[in-house]
């Protein structure tokens, strides 16, 4: 995308998708630049330590490859997260089958947050990180999607593959656990 192109920068995701479908390849660049880092952070938060960029790229390729089936019922970013999550699950399964799995498994409490000791500067943030690691994987994922990515329960439910009600319960359980751990 040419720097400073207000037409693309101000366009909504839906508008950019429509432009790309009409042949405007610059719209794809704009969509990638808008969402790639968030998808990468999300993939990292799932505990993947290697191959994050490959998963992000694959998620975009798959999303763009089937944009005609994208009904727009959810946000484009939510759709990307959903695809990325499935790719991570597939990657873990294949690595596990190949006995090459050095990644964190679904049920383990450890995630990338355990590796943040060196980059978390303050004591307050260190305590916060430790509190997050004490959440169950699902609680942590829902909590991070809600607090860090600002997703609604509906969007979280779509990404995680659960119901809005279950996402709400996970969020409040996580919040209560965080308060207890942090003693606030």
């Amino acid at each position: 995308m040419p720097p400073g192109d207000p037409t693309l920068q101000d366009a909504t995701d839906t508008e950019l998708i429509a432009r790309w479908q009409r042949g405007d390849e610059r719209a794809a660049t704009s969509l990638v630049e808008r969402h790639a880092t968030a998808v990468g952070r999300y993939v990292s938060s799932l505990g993947l330590r290697a191959g994050v960029e490959d998963v992000v790229q694959d998620a975009f390729v798959r999303a763009f490859g089937s944009l005609e089936s994208f009904r727009g019922e959810s946000a484009f970013r939510t759709w990307l997260f959903t695809i990325a999550r499935r790719l991570v699950a597939d990657l873990r399964r294949s690595r596990k089958r190949g006995r090459e799995d050095t990644e964190v498994q679904e049920g383990d409490a450890a995630t990338e947050f355990d590796a943040l000791d060196d980059v978390i500067a303050g004591e307050s943030q260190r305590r916060m990180q430790q509190a997050l690691t004490r959440l169950t994987p699902t609680q942590r994922e829902v909590f991070v999607l809600r607090v860090n990515d600002g997703m609604s329960y509906k969007e979280i439910a779509d990404v995680v593959g659960t119901t809005e009600g279950a996402a709400r319960v996970h969020y409040h359980n996580a919040l209560r656990q965080m308060k207890e751990t942090l003693n606030v």
Binding site: V56, N148, M178
Partner: peptide
């Protein structure tokens, strides 16, 4: 505070140009 802590995570290195190059062509 939780959000600030999460924002402090180092962002994974993402080559957006490589992603764009791998995308299928529009119809």
């Amino acid at each position: 505070e939780v959000r600030q802590m999460l924002d402090a995570r180092p962002a994974p290195r993402i080559d957006t140009a490589a992603i764009v190059g791998a995308l299928p062509r529009p119809s």
